[in-house]
Structure formats: structure tokens, C-alpha cells
């Protein structure tokens, strides 16, 4: 490899993605809010579609060129994102009325025609911080509440963990891919906006947290806390708040069997209550 010419070093990560036959734009209608308690407004932007564009790259374009279709200069839109490959859960938003990850929303598939309109709104079940960015702390609060961890005896080595049947591992693996993105909560009729942290103990935990409870209850060591988790989940905000609308499983980007998890937790809490009734424990 001695004859690589210098000029050829330039296209390193720009392989020959074919240029589109003709350039086109899509129109973004974005619901904007300057901060908590502020009124929201709509702004629209025309964005030229790059090859391989997704909602994120269009928002990046708007950040660099914050001018509305009326030619009015505005501020860059604020949004939350991270990995951009649908494993971190950050970039959930409501796109044309349906909650999903914005990174995997590819423009060429989603809005294939010149002038197509894409509407972006923040999720409605969480307090808005600014524009499309919401605060999902309630989800993590509820994970703490159900003790979503395996209670190990410290981090020094004590040999391997429990052996596990591969089928069981596959089941647990699927549950473990939950990235706390909040899509299932946005789609759930029973999960409603609650801005006050002091009311979170009574508020519905939602599908993601129920499924995580199942995940930890299914682990040999994790099940040591099963009874405590079921105590929480048979109380207010627990599994009985589920209205069985089954929207959660339809919007989950990781296709986690959330309704199965809810059913499993429902059975466990029932059994748990009966046991408690008869044994007093």
C-alpha cells in the first residue's frame, strides 16, 4: 500500500450514496415551547433532503439554519438525542401523531415526496423542558421504587452467576432491551401527565416499569426482592391501573412483549395477595 494518492484520502466516510434524481424538500411543522408553563406555538421549516436523511439530520439542518418558511429568523429547535441508532431511547417524540424514535424515522421511506409535511411534537405524558425535549425522570423514579436491580453481595469476585437455560435467557434478553424511551407510556390511556414528584408514588408506573419488574423477578438472585416489588405493584399506581388498551405493545420500538409482562405481573400480584392473606406474610 504505497501508492495511495493524497487526493484520494478525502472521501473516507462518504461512500458513493447516489445523489437523488432531483433535490427535494420536506416541510417540518414543529410545536415549540420556550419553557415550562410557557405557551406553545407552531413553526414550519423547509428542509432539503440529503441522502440517508432522518428526522435528526433535518433537525440538525434547522439548528444550523433556523429560519421559518415565512423567512423569519428564529432559534434552533431543542430536542433530546443520543446514540442515533435506536438503542439509547433518548429521541422519542410524537411524529405525525404517533410516538416513536426520531433517529429511525428515515425521510425517504417516511415522507417520499417533494413537499411532504412531517409534524413533530413533544411527548405529552412528561413535562416539557423546551420544545421537543421532555423530562422523563418519573420513569427512573419508578424503577427505583420497584427496586429494579439484582441484589448482589458486593463487587468482589465470588465466582459465576447462576446457570441459565438458553430459552430463559432469550426471554430475559428481550425484556432487558427496554431503553426507557417512554413510547409505551405516551401511548397508554391510563398513564397521564403528572408534574409533581410528590404524587408519583400514587401515579401509574406504566408498561415499561411493570416489564422491568418481571425481568428482575425472573432472575435467580433478582427474585429475592420479588415480594417487595409485588407489594408495590399491587398498590396504587400498580398493575391494577392497567386498562388493557394494549397500545403499549404496538408502539414499543424494541418489540418487547409488554402485554405478556403485564399479564405475568398481574398473575404474580394476585398469587402474592392470596399468599399474604392466608399466611399473613
Amino acid at each position: 500500500m504505497t501508492n495511495l494518492s493524497e487526493e484520494k484520502t478525502t472521501p473516507m466516510i462518504a461512500p458513493n450514496t447516489p445523489e437523488p434524481a432531483k433535490s427535494r424538500t420536506v416541510r417540518f411543522r414543529i410545536k415549540r415551547t420556550d419553557g415550562p408553563g410557557k405557551n406553545s406555538r407552531w413553526e414550519s421549516f423547509d428542509v432539503p433532503v440529503e441522502p440517508g436523511a432522518n428526522v435528526i439530520s433535518c433537525l440538525q439542518y434547522i439548528a444550523a439554519n433556523p429560519v421559518t418558511i415565512e423567512g423569519k429568523k428564529t432559534t434552533p429547535v431543542v430536542w433530546d438525542s443520543g446514540c442515533l441508532e435506536e438503542v439509547c431511547g433518548a429521541c422519542s417524540m410524537v411524529i405525525n401523531g404517533r410516538v416513536r424514535q426520531s433517529c429511525s424515522c428515515l425521510i425517504d421511506q417516511y415522507a417520499p415526496n417533494d413537499g411532504d409535511v412531517i409534524t413533530l411534537e413533544p411527548m405529552t405524558k412528561f413535562p416539557v423542558i423546551r420544545d421537543l425535549w421532555v423530562d422523563r425522570e418519573r420513569l427512573f423514579y419508578h424503577l427505583r421504587k420497584i427496586q429494579a436491580w439484582v441484589p448482589i453481595d458486593g463487587t468482589y469476585s465470588r465466582g459465576p452467576g447462576p446457570r441459565e437455560d438458553p430459552e430463559h435467557q432469550q426471554m430475559r434478553y428481550k425484556l432487558s432491551t427496554c431503553m426507557s424511551c417512554g413510547c409505551c407510556l405516551e401511548a397508554c390511556p391510563q398513564y397521564t401527565l403528572e408534574e409533581h414528584e410528590e404524587k408519583w408514588d400514587e401515579a401509574f408506573v406504566g408498561a415499561a416499569v411493570l416489564s422491568q419488574a418481571r425481568y428482575f423477578n425472573e432472575h435467580e438472585t433478582g427474585k429475592r426482592l420479588k415480594s417487595l416489588r409485588l407489594d408495590v405493584l399491587s398498590g396504587p399506581g400498580g398493575v391494577n391501573d392497567c386498562g388493557n388498551a394494549q397500545n403499549c405493545v404496538k408502539v414499543c420500538p424494541k418489540e418487547i412483549p409488554l402485554t405478556e409482562s403485564i399479564a405475568a405481573i398481574g398473575r404474580s400480584t394476585t398469587l402474592h395477595s392470596i399468599t399474604k392473606f392466608f399466611t399473613g406474610k
Binding site: V150, I152, R158, P160, R163, D165, P166, Q169, R172, Y173
Partner: peptide, 17 residues
Amino acid sequence: IDLLDRMGVPFNRTSEG
């Protein structure tokens, strides 16, 4: 690896577990 295993990481398994 042993520690992560104890923490519950769903490592892929062989047929014997």
C-alpha cells in the same frame, strides 16, 4: 465477567446453560 453474570446480564447461553 463473573461479576457481570451475577448482576444479571443476560449473556447468551449454550444448551447446557
